[in-house]
Amino acid sequence: MEIKDKIVPLLQEQFPETNFEVTDFRGDLKIKFDASLIVPVGNFLKQHDELKFNMCEDVTAVDWATKKKRFTIIYHIYSLENKFRLRLACDVEENHPHIESVVPVWKSANWYERETYDMYGIKFDNHPDLRRMYMPEEYEYYPLRKEYPLMGIPGDLTLPKK
C-alpha cells in the first residue's frame, strides 16, 4: 500500500468528525479541512510513525476574490522518509482573516507565515514574531490581494529627495 493511499484513512481515523475534502490533480494530493484543526492535524502528520511529514516547505495563501471564504491558506509539507509531498488547505474568511500558527509544529513556517502576512494580511495567531517580511514596516497595504493594483497606489512608498 502506497503512502498516498494511507494518509486520508489515517487522518479520518484520528479525526472522525472532520470532513476531509481530498483532491488528486496531476498526482498532487491535496487535503482541505477546517481551519481550526490545522495545528492538531499538523502535529498528527508530523509525529505519526509512518507518515512523518517532518519538513514544512511552504506556506502561502490564495485570494479567490469572493465574498465568502475569500482566502485559502496552503501548506506544503514533505516527508523525507517517504519522499512524499502533501498539500494542506484551509479556508479563512475575508473579515479578520486569521489562523493558528504552525510554528510550534514546524519551525520553518516562521518566515513563510510572515511572508503570507506581508502579502495577504492574514494574521497567524500565536506567531512568535509576526512582522512584515518584504515591505517596509509602516506599509499599509497587502500587495498580493486581488484589489491591489499591479503598479501600486501612488504615493504609498516614498522616494528620497532629489
Binding site: T23, F25, R26, D28, K30, E57, D58, V62, I74, H76, R85, R87
Partner: peptide, 8 residues
C-alpha cells in the same frame, strides 16, 4: 485545466 499543482 482548472486546478493547482506544485512542482519542485
Amino acid at each position: 485545466p482548472v486546478g493547482d499543482i506544485y512542482s519542485a
